[in-house]
Design a protein around this nucleic acid. Structure first.
Lengths: 192, 192
DNA sequence: ACCTGAACACCGTTCAAGT
DNA sequence: ACCTGAACACCGTTCAAGT
């Protein structure tokens, strides 16, 4: 008789990332992950209450791996860096953007994404209300843009229409638009 | 023996909207929809090649029902109206935002959403490239914000954290930020 | 603490055949 | 043109029981 393998929570998350990156979010199933770990599906429920909780842990791990401290400097340069870094973190793994965006939307995880962007806005002089609004706006841009980029890959390889041109330049331009809008709000405080 | 019911494509879409609004996107399954139509699941594949195509048709129908011609006026007022109208259209049905955003991301439908926003930017004086970037930025804001609002409902009723405050005011503020950013770009052309 | 075995209640999709 | 019947290859989750 074979002795059953024994894993920790971190093993499960690590293998989940491998499955995500190799097969995509749609194929990151509890059963497939269990098979990859050489374990029955029910064993996963010892580590996580359900699939959503597991996905939240995976999303948090992706962010932990991808986000670094921001450079010192003006708030706008820091905000641009935060957004670009977040985008890179999401694009680093297959379907990373969709995963983190979904988890964040459900309020189960991905808080680090918001925090990262919000941190850059602390030196802007905006009040907390406006900082939160600005942070969410940037977050929606990054999530939306990165998700579109990654989805386009599988959509066009599946024969669908390639609508969104996107790419690095379009992201940078969209971001500069939002940053300019925030700057206008910042300046309206200093020049009444 | 019972004579089988006979439906058209439009019947299927109409019932799909009813199922979506009553039970949510997760419960909008081919089997459930078939049961609602009093038909075997396989019958649906006479009308649609697969589930994704059906969802695309549903998304397009939601937009057709919710979007109206924009008022005449300045580009910024028209853009604000287009974005608000789109948001209202998405929020009018349960999980409408997530559905349209997903369909749009996969390039299978929801083109009307982009067109609606892009139309408002035609009178801005921006070149096509910038108009496209601005339109996508607004679209990501609307999709992200509306999805967050609708997801928060089921997430908080399911016991998750209520992170995003959101609501009408936060959307209006985020939109005003983006509009201000676009205005800065517009003005940089006229005042060199 | 971590896992198996077995079950429950589901999915999307295909395809030959019926009217 | 539109549908049935029957199957295939999957899902997430629960729970008693094993070590």
């Amino acid at each position: 008789m074979e002795v059953p393998l024994r894993h920790h929570r971190s093993d499960v998350v690590e293998h989940a990332i491998a499955v995500l990156d190799s097969y995509g979010l749609a194929d990151l199933t509890m059963r497939r992950l269990a098979a990859e770990l050489d374990v029955r599906p029910s064993a996963l429920y010892h580590h996580f209450a359900n699939k959503q909780t597991l996905l939240a842990a995976v999303a948090d791990e992706l962010l932990t791996r991808g986000l670094r401290p921001l450079d010192a400097g003006e708030w706008d340069a820091r905000l641009t860096q935060a957004a670009s870094q977040l985008r890179d973190a999401l694009l680093a793994w297959r379907d990373g953007a969709e995963l983190v965006a979904t988890v964040h939307a459900f309020g189960l995880g991905g808080q680090a994404a918001y925090d990262h962007v919000a941190q850059a806005l602390e030196g802007s002089g905006l009040d907390e209300q406006w900082r939160a609004t600005a942070a969410r706006t940037v977050l929606h841009l990054v999530f939306g843009h990165a998700t579109a980029e990654q989805t386009q890959v599988q959509a066009s390889s599946a024969g669908a229409i390639d609508a969104e041109p996107g790419g690095v330049d379009d992201f940078a331009d969209g971001l500069s638009l939002v940053v300019a809008g925030i700057r206008a709000e910042v300046q309206s405080r200093h020049t009444p």
